[in-house]
């Protein structure tokens, strides 16, 4: 009783199976392409954390009557105190439940050179070596300095000695 009619069921079963498997394969491969959206969220969280840390470092802990007290951040930049800056930044970043957070950071200060009309920079802290492949976020903070910072790197000792606004940029990434 085996005839050609029977083979059609088999073929159609195979056809249906191929259609479904192919669709599932396409669906899986397309959705996994769209998931890079996820990587934006850790960026957003890291950026928020970095901004908060810089803002809090730039908030004086107390303010007496008329005296305008300098924040820790201003103090560190004025003294180009890399060690204390890094220690405090990491300390604020790592205040959390559970284990610490392995954050890497580099910090640069951008200042405005009025003689040449350009914006120049120097390194405040470049202890963590960036390979350039990291997915780093950049957080910034305006800092008002009353005078030229001390202990500057050789190349930028010609910063004007005047009250000025500089921009502190911190690159943050996780390994």
């Amino acid at each position: 009783m085996v005839n050609d009619r029977g083979q059609l069921y088999t073929m159609e079963g195979v056809a249906a199976g191929i259609i479904m498997l192919l669709t599932a394969y396409i669906v899986i491969s397309t959705t996994s392409i769209y998931t890079p959206g996820d990587t934006h969220i850790p960026d957003m969280q890291l950026e928020q954390l970095g901004s908060d840390v810089l803002a809090m470092m730039d908030t004086p802990n107390s303010k007496e009557d008329d005296e305008s007290q300098e924040s820790d951040l201003v103090t560190y930049i004025l003294a180009t105190d890399k060690t204390s800056f890094r220690a405090m930044f990491r300390d604020y970043c790592n205040m959390r439940a559970g284990s610490g957070d392995d954050l890497k950071m580099n910090a640069y200060v951008y200042f405005h050179d009025r003689d040449t009309g350009t914006v120049r920079s120097y390194v405040l802290d470049e202890e963590d070596h960036a390979t350039g492949r990291e997915n780093a976020v950049r957080v910034t903070r305006w800092v008002q300095l009353p005078e030229r910072p001390d202990n500057l790197p050789m190349a930028v000792t010609d910063i004007d000695n005047r009250p000025q606004a500089v921009l502190l940029e911190v690159l943050l990434w996780r390994t």
């Binding site: 069921y9 079963g13 191929i18 479904m20």
Partner: peptide, 24 residues
């Protein structure tokens, strides 16, 4: 017999696809 073979292939494929969905 023929129906059984065809339908089994279909069901097998369906089961495979269904098991892929949670992974998706």
């Amino acid at each position: 017999l023929d129906f059984l073979v065809g339908f089994t292939i279909f069901m097998l494929a369906l089961i495979m696809v269904v098991s892929m969905v949670p992974g998706l």
